[in-house]
C-alpha cells in the first residue's frame, strides 16, 4: 500500500512538473523559437503563397501534427526532420504560441 502510494505520488508529481514546465516557459524564449518558424511560415505566422500559415491554428491539432511528424506517423518532405529537433514540451509551447496569434 505504502509502495503504491509512493509510486502514485511520484507519477503525479512528474505529471505536474511536466505541466508546470510547459506553463512556466519564458514567453520571450518561446517567441524566439517561434520566430525561427517564421522564416518559412511568415512573420507572426502569416505565410506567403506556397507555405502554410500558422497564426490562429487550433492548438491541439497543431501539436498532434507536430508529434506525428516527430514520430514519423505523418509523412513529410522535411518537417519530420525538423520536428525531431524539439522536445514534446517545446512543441506544446510553440503550438500554444501560434494558436494565440491573430489569423
Amino acid at each position: 500500500m505504502m509502495r503504491w502510494n509512493r509510486l502514485a505520488a511520484v507519477g503525479m508529481l512528474s505529471t505536474l512538473a511536466g505541466w508546470a514546465g510547459a506553463q512556466t516557459m519564458d514567453p520571450m524564449q518561446v517567441r524566439g523559437w517561434a520566430s525561427t518558424c517564421a522564416t518559412c511560415h511568415g512573420t507572426a505566422g502569416i505565410a506567403q503563397p506556397g507555405m502554410e500559415s500558422l497564426a490562429g491554428v487550433n492548438k491541439d491539432e497543431m501539436l498532434k501534427k507536430m508529434m506525428d511528424f516527430k514520430t514519423g506517423k505523418k509523412p513529410a518532405t522535411l518537417m519530420h526532420q525538423l520536428a525531431k529537433g524539439y522536445s514534446d514540451e517545446q512543441l506544446q509551447a510553440l503550438a500554444g504560441y501560434f494558436a494565440a496569434l491573430k489569423k
Binding site: A38, T39, T43, Q48, P49, G50, M51, T77
Partner: peptide
C-alpha cells in the same frame, strides 16, 4: 517537383520575413 514548389515558397517567405 514538389520540393521545387516548396523551394520557391521558402524563397518568397524568407524574403518577406
Amino acid at each position: 517537383e514538389l520540393e521545387a514548389g516548396y523551394a520557391m515558397g521558402w524563397a518568397r517567405n524568407i524574403w518577406a520575413d
